[in-house]
Each structure stands twice: as C-alpha cells, then as structure tokens.
C-alpha cells in the first residue's frame, strides 16, 4: 500500500472516530439534560404533593402554606424555561420531551388549583395568567407572547403565569381547557378568569389585566 493510500485510510479513520465521538457526546449530553429535567420535575412533584398535604393538614390555618406555594411557582417557572430550551434543542417531537411536558402541565394545573384554594381561604387576590400556545407552526404570535409573559413574570414576581401547549395530548389538560372554556384561537390567555385571544404588543396585553393588578402584585401575598 502506498504512503498516500495509507495516510488517507488513517485520516478517514480519525475523522470517523472523531465524528462518532462528537455524535456520542451530543447524545450523551442531551440524555443528561433530559435526566436533569426529570430530576427537577420529580423534585417539584414531591414539593407539590407536600404542599397539597400541608394545605390539608393546616385546614384550620391554610394561609401558612402561602410562602411554600409562592416558592413552588418560581421553581415551576425555572423548570418551564429549561423545558422550553430542551424542546428547542431536541425537537418538539422528542418523546422524552413530550412526556416531561405532560408531567409539567399536570404540575402547573395542580399549582394553579392550590393557588386558587389558598386565595379563597386566605382572601388574597393573586393575579394568575393561563397562557395557551402552540408550537406546531400555527401560532405566529406565540413566541412574542411567551417572551412578554417572561418579562412580566420577572417584573412582577408574584404574577403567576401558567403556560400550556394547547395541542398536548393529555386528558387532564383537555379537561382543563374545557373547564376554562379556552378556544383554539392561539395564543389564548385567561387573566384572572377573563379570556383574551391574540397578541399584538406588551402595552395592549397589559390592558387585559385588572386595573392596578400589576402594580399591586408586587406587594401582595
């Protein structure tokens, strides 16, 4: 075998090994990413159950669990960010991502219900936003709406935003959509029970909030 042919074969071998290593490393890191998401989700699941239990135990003084509930909502928001990032990296069709999204949606619904119960029991008036989106390519304004809500959540830490993929095939979510009477005209919002559809600008969107709600949420609860 000539020197050149030998070198070509060695170089080809190096390239294949290097490319294979890269593909393996990318898959490994993505698996780790999904595993971390799963771990966070499990943790939140336990905390949700804990809060639920705490709420039941403190039936007489349920308002003691408000702090726990608020912290939980923050963790849910962080998980939502990570999930959205993982979805962007791995694709919307990735089975593990879809599975995690389903669990995440269940946690959100559970947190929303606890928030409502606490509000009724303690007389607080939290501002909650249910946000329904789609990433199937049929919602051109969903990215803008999602970013605006991220901003509002940062600007008003006590604002409770719950994001749901409208097309996610999950029984509880379908029931939730039916109960909240949300139509498939996306993006759809339910701000303290009031429905609105479409997103034009942050300024217009803020008009959907109860008067003074955004200002007071920073100091309420």
């Amino acid at each position: 075998m000539s020197l050149i042919a030998r070198n070509v074969l060695i170089a080809l071998g190096i390239t294949i090994v290097l490319s294979g290593t890269v593909v393996y490393a990318v898959n490994y890191l993505n698996r780790e990413r999904v595993a971390e998401l799963g771990a966070i989700e499990n943790q939140i699941s336990i905390e949700t159950l804990s809060l639920d239990t705490q709420f039941s135990l403190l039936a007489a003084t349920p308002c003691d669990s408000i702090a726990s509930s608020t912290a939980l909502t923050g963790e849910l928001a962080d998980l939502g960010n990570r999930l959205a990032y993982a979805e962007g990296q791995l694709g919307t069709d990735n089975a593990q991502v879809v599975q995690l999204k389903k669990q995440y949606s269940l946690l959100e619904i559970r947190d929303y219900l606890i928030t409502k119960q606490l509000a009724a029991a303690c007389g607080t008036k939290p501002v909650t936003v249910l946000y329904f989106y789609s990433n199937a390519g049929d919602c051109s304004d969903c990215d803008k709406a999602g970013y605006a809500l991220s901003y509002l959540r940062t600007a008003y830490p006590t604002l409770r935003v719950y994001s749901f993929d409208y097309n996610l095939n999950l029984g509880a979510l379908k029931t939730f959509e039916a109960v909240t009477k949300v139509k498939d005209d996306l993006p759809a919002f339910v701000v303290n029970g009031k429905h609105s559809y479409g997103f034009t600008s942050l300024a217009d969107f803020e008009k959907q909030f109860p008067k003074g709600a955004l200002a007071t949420t920073t100091s309420s609860n």
Partner: peptide, 19 residues
C-alpha cells in the same frame, strides 16, 4: 465539516510520515 476534518487529519498524518 467532515471533509475539512478529514483533510486536516490527512495533513497531520502526512506531517508525521517519513518523507
């Protein structure tokens, strides 16, 4: 990218060769 890595590998291997 595959071809670029292949060519650079080839250069490196040839650089280490006897000639």
């Amino acid at each position: 990218l595959f071809l670029a890595i292949f060519f650079e590998s080839f250069v490196l291997v040839t650089l280490l060769s006897k000639p």
